[in-house]
């Protein structure tokens, strides 16, 4: 809960409003495991809180470790809410890729999460729990909202979780340590840009709308040129960053024509393009590009003035790499198809 929500709940419980701030401190600074430990709240007050609430910490129930050190954690957040988070340690940083939904509604052709359909939204608490319950929490330097689900299809809970992570009364993280990804749900993206200072990453994958439509059904709803117009309205000259995610598919979006069009459409936007190797999923008609083409693509973008980097693939052997998170096998045991 955010501070205002905690204060409201404190008042409802007959506690003074400032108890909300005390509770926030116990939850987000001192990381207590029980309400009983909140010793600056009266015994009577704690009893009332215990009758109404629980801290709700849910440690991961399973972990898989990659040969490269990446760890994939499975969380059971509630009934039917199975989600994965990927912990990615690197030389001088450690990133956690968190999920925002159980499954996903967006149906992107290249994504494993989309194959399980959509089961549920996560609450802000369930998102924060992936960080709070992480055994390596103390080592984290960055959080990216790039796990299961489309974060801006759950924008209210995502914003609440960001408020908890970045507020002084919360985890007090710099928003510059957090990146939220989206495929471009424009109204929610505008809302996010207005309400948060965290970085934004936009899944691009093709500079041509007709091609993007075949990879990402969202293009039928919000067009790429509209997304870019919305991005250009925002002032990116300060520390906040926008980046564009681009999975490079062999023979599909890796040609000089794509390089030229990327340069054209991103003109005027201070940004970075993250080139991502495709991690094949079962039954996919897509294939990754070869390493030589990938490097050529990156170099040509850089030569033409668009900052481009190739993202290292991590955790591929445990299906923790980009686009591979899924709890379909678990959820399909317990759900019936909706048609």
């Amino acid at each position: 809960m955010t501070l205002s929500q905690l204060s409201d709940k404190a008042l409802e419980a007959g506690l003074p409003k400032f108890a909300g701030k005390q509770i926030a401190e116990w939850l987000y600074k001192k990381h207590v495991a029980s309400i009983d430990e909140m010793t600056n709240i009266s015994i009577k007050g704690r009893k009332i809180l215990q009758e109404r609430f629980e801290i709700g910490i849910k440690p991961p129930v399973k972990v898989q470790t990659s040969v490269d050190g990446t760890k994939k954690y499975l969380f059971v957040q509630g009934e039917m809410k199975f989600v994965e988070a990927a912990y990615i340690p690197d030389a001088d940083r450690a990133t956690l890729c968190v999920s925002s939904q159980v499954g996903c509604k967006m149906g992107c052709l290249f994504c494993m999460t989309g194959k399980q359909g959509f089961q549920a939204q996560l609450t802000a608490g369930e998102i924060v729990n992936q960080i709070r319950s992480l055994p390596e929490r103390q080592t984290l330097t960055n959080v990216v909202y790039m796990g299961m689900g489309e974060p801006l299809d759950n924008v209210d809970a995502v914003l609440q979780s960001l408020e908890i992570l970045t507020s002084e009364w919360g985890y007090a993280w710099s928003p510059k340590r957090i990146t939220v990804s989206t495929i471009g749900i424009i109204p929610a993206m505008r809302h996010f840009l207005e309400k948060s200072d965290c970085h934004l990453a936009i899944s691009l994958h093709s500079p041509f709308e007709d091609e993007r439509r075949k990879l990402m059904p969202i293009e039928n709803v919000y067009h790429l040129h509209q997304i870019l117009e919305a991005v250009k309205e925002y002032d990116w000259t300060h520390q906040r960053r926008v980046s564009f995610e681009y999975i490079v598919f062999g023979g599909l979006n890796d040609t000089p024509r794509h390089i030229n069009e990327l340069v054209r459409i991103l003109s005027g936007i201070r940004c970075r393009v993250n080139l991502i190797r495709f991690h094949p999923i079962p039954g996919t008609p897509l294939q990754g590009t070869d390493e030589q083409t990938l490097q050529y693509f990156k170099n040509r973008l850089n030569e033409k003035g668009v900052l481009a980097t190739v993202r290292a693939s991590r955790g591929q052997d445990i299906y923790a790499a980009c686009g591979l998170l899924s709890t379909k096998e678990i959820t399909s045991i317990q759900t019936n198809t909706d048609y």
Partner: peptide, 21 residues
Amino acid sequence: GSAEMVVDTRDLLISRGVSFE
């Protein structure tokens, strides 16, 4: 339709030789 139906159907059509395009 739902994400589930769209993804299931798309996968099925592709497996039967339909181009994703």
